[in-house]
Amino acid sequence: MNVKPTCYFEASARTRIAKLVDPDSFSELCPPHLRHSSPHLARLNAPVAFDDGVMVGRALLAGHPVLIAGQEGKFNGGAVGEVHGAKLCGLLERALSERPAAVLLLVDSGGVRLHEANAGLIAISELMRAVLRTEEAGIPVFALIGGSCGAFGGMGIVTLLCTEVVISEQGRIGLSGPEVIETVKGVDEFDSRDRALVWRITGGKLRRVLGDATRLVDDDIASFRAATAELLGKHAERRLPASDLAALTEEHEQLSARARRYDTARDGRIVFEEAGFTELESVALMPVDDFNRHLEGTP
């Protein structure tokens, strides 16, 4: 078989889902022909989408039953509004009764949708609780990140609540986007057009070194699939460890140590250096496999 790899970054959310899961296994919940689009966008005279920019459903991945959601970054920057957020919350609620091997969130979002900002903010806080409740029930939640909008704003928080975070080099995670910081604080604080700098602050490799992402993969859907399948296998073997007082105390110490270690840092350069990547230029160019080998210390 000679299958051309499909770029994850460029693909639509529908294509990502179709090619990520086992062939023809995706069945959509709340599909577009039900026309649950946003009445709030319509009231503001803005274009609407039949699925409100997110599709949710069930599928198989390497034979594992999963619930899956894909945000469409090209529709309003994947931003979360009332309907969009409720679909994600509903999917996580379904997980409690259906008990899939995992819930997969293909995050591609700048965060809250400003046209319905209050509804979006509330939905994200509901989503945060829903992710935690799903994990508490022993069902892992994975975030997959490699789209043009990355995972920002509230979706950046939701992503860091996930059990596993699979990211490509082009994927980005953060809270406030570089453009927002530049607008409010000035170009000296963050030059959002300096792409190399943005990459060294938010990019997939930096997030992997810091441990916010748990897998770094190439920017093609097959690589995302392979990593997800591997993680599904891993989680099938052992139950999710409880997020108890001891675990959170340890997490607290790690985050405190990170804040102390990089207490004045404003550039990812130092993070790469301390991880043993001595030549910064070579990190950017280093193939993902080599990068992972170096980071995980395997020969």
Binding site: P31, P32, H33, A49, D51, E72, K74, F75
Partner: peptide, 15 residues
């Protein structure tokens, strides 16, 4: 029913 395309600037969605 089938849907095609994305509602993004210069584009459209067809159901």
């Amino acid at each position: 029913p089938r849907v095609c395309g994305v509602v993004s600037s210069g584009n459209l969605e067809v159901l």
